[in-house]
Structure formats: C-alpha cells, structure tokens
Computed example of a mutant assay.
Amino acid sequence: MNKNDLTAASPFRKRLAAYFAERFPLSSHLSMVFIYFLANQFLAQILCEPEHPMRIGWFTLLGMISLFCLFLHLRVFDEHKDYADDCRFYPDRILSRGLITLRHLKILGGTAIAAEFIVAGLRGAQAVVAVIVTFLFSWIMLHEFFVRHWLRTHFIVYAIAHMLIMPFMAATVFSFTMRRPFWEAPFLFWVYAIADFLAFSNWEISRKIRMPEDEIEGLASYSKELGLFTSCVVVLVLRLLNTFLAWMVGVYLHLGPLYYGGLIVLFFGTLVGVLHFWLKPSRRTAKHLEAYGGWYIIFFYFVLAAELFRLHGVTFTGDAL
C-alpha cells in the first residue's frame, strides 16, 4: 500500500511498517549493523589477542541487538528533537500526518533502550558501562547539548557534534567483544573509530547536498551553508582522511593487497560520484552522492572484516556469554 493511501483508520501494523520504510529502513540498518559490528569486533580481537583466533558467539548476536536498538533509539530521539521542524518542512511524512505519533515512538524508543540494557547486562558490567555512557551522550544530543539556539545557528558545528556518537558506538562494540572497559581499547582501535566517524560524516554531508531549486527556505543544508563546490570538496577531503586512517590500520596489521585494493576502489567510487555531480549537477546526481556514501559504509567495513577473516579465520564458540 502506498503511504499516501494510509489514513488514521488503517491497521497500525501497516502504518508502523510505512514509518519504518520511510524513516528507518530495516534491511539497510540490519545490514549496516551486522557488518559494522563484525568488522569492529574482529579488529578488537586481533589488536587485543593477536595470538588467539577470532571468535563469533552468542555475544556477537547480543552486541548486534544492542547496536541495532541504539540506532533505533537515536532515530526516536531525532524525531522528538526535530518534530516541529519536520511538521513544517515535511508535512507529508507519516509522523507529521499523525499516522504514527510521538507517543507511539516513545514506547518504541523505550523498548529499544530497555533491550540495550538487558542484553548488555547479559554480557557483563563492562558492556553495561559502555551502553550507559553511549546512552547519556545520546540524551545530551536529544537536548542539543543544552545550547539549542546556538547550535541551530551554527549548522556545521551542530552536525559534527551529533556525529561524535560514532566513537561511542565503537566503544560499545569493544566492551561487548572483549569484556573489558572501553577505555582499555588499543590506540589503533580508536584510530579506526575516527575513520568510522569520518565515513559516517561523509554520508551525512552527502545526503544534504541539494540543487538550488531543491533547497527549502528555513531548512539548513551543507550546499546552502558551504555552496555546492565547497560541499563536494569537503566530501572528498573526509573520504581521503578516512581512507588514510584505514590504510594506516592495515599497514600495522600487515593486511594484504585485497584490503588496500578495496580501499582504492571505494575511494575512486566517491571521486567518480563527486565528479559526476560537478560536471552534471542535477537532482539525480545529487541523490547519487547520498547513495555512494551509504554503500561506501557497508563495503568499507566489509573489506576489513573479509581481510581479517581471510588472514586469521574465525571460530564459533558455543559460550552463551
């Protein structure tokens, strides 16, 4: 059923499914959580216990559930934070039309947060601490660092501040994997966490580059704040830095040519997308920038996980916790 055909009388499950399809596509989020967690888990194990084989067990599933619920509760927090603006600028959205309400999302978000803490409790105190710290940062984000007006008038700072949640996610993966406090993570793990931050920042900027005719009065975008050319330069610089840090991690781990080849292909994929937009700026090529950024994230983690698997193999443990 088309979302425009839905009404308040439509079955709730259809309205909820339409909301997820519009604001939190399950297939893409599940894919991203799976490969993100696996890559960072393998990295943590190789850095902390290089003499032991990498492991996958029930703790992997628990961590993935917690991470998925974290992304979901972040979406719910964003919906509450941006509700007034979304009703003004996007009146056709499911939430703006009242087909799903903020009360519904509070229940959904509360369930997700409860699930995060329950599965963290099953894994141990270190995972609980990581989840608590990450939740507290997300709560501060919800309140826009208690400087809402200032942040809203400094869009670039606003965006960077909100992307800082990424290192906290990496910290959560580390604690779920190693059963150690996240502050004990090796230096190279944090280097890759910065690469995570840059990869997601690249996607965040790419999806908010618009043609002048698509800009919405009163709604910020990177193309409006920086201009089309400068926005694209920033996208390329972030990708270059992201690739450099990932490359350095690979050098330290003595990864093979398949890993470096993957990074090169991914970088040139971004370059081609940006050049295409520069040469033929249009609504279509602008949307391609967002698609390139999204697919990059998936394959960025895939090349690391695949290369570590190729070099070290993996064992499956039946240990529950």
Rank of each mutant, 00 (worst) to 15 (best):
I100V: 15
H73P: 03
I194H: 05
L253Y: 12
R103L: 03
V33M: 15
V235L: 15
Y19Q: 12
M178K: 00
I264C: 14
A199R: 04
P281H: 05
D86I: 03
F187H: 10
R180E: 00
F146C: 10
M169G: 06
V303P: 13
F187V: 13
F12L: 11
R210S: 08
P53V: 02
F37M: 10
V234L: 14
R23G: 06
L266V: 13
Y36S: 06
Y90K: 15
R55D: 00
H288R: 11
L255V: 08
Y158H: 10
F302Q: 07
E213Y: 15
T134S: 08
M248C: 05
E79L: 11
R97C: 09
L258W: 10
L70D: 01
A120F: 00
E217L: 08
K3P: 11
R239C: 06
H52T: 03
W183L: 07
R97L: 07
R88C: 10
V233G: 05
A193Y: 04
V272I: 15
W150P: 07
Y83L: 07
H162T: 04
A246H: 04
D196M: 12
R179L: 00
F34Y: 10
F59G: 01
M178C: 01
T317D: 06
Y301E: 12
L311Q: 11
G261A: 14
A39P: 02
L108W: 08
G269H: 03
L70Q: 06
A195P: 09
R210M: 11
A185M: 01
L311A: 03
Q126Y: 06
A112K: 05
A195G: 09
L245K: 02
A127C: 05
A185C: 04
I56R: 00
V314Y: 02
G269P: 12
S223T: 13
R55Y: 05
I205L: 13
R75S: 12
P281N: 06
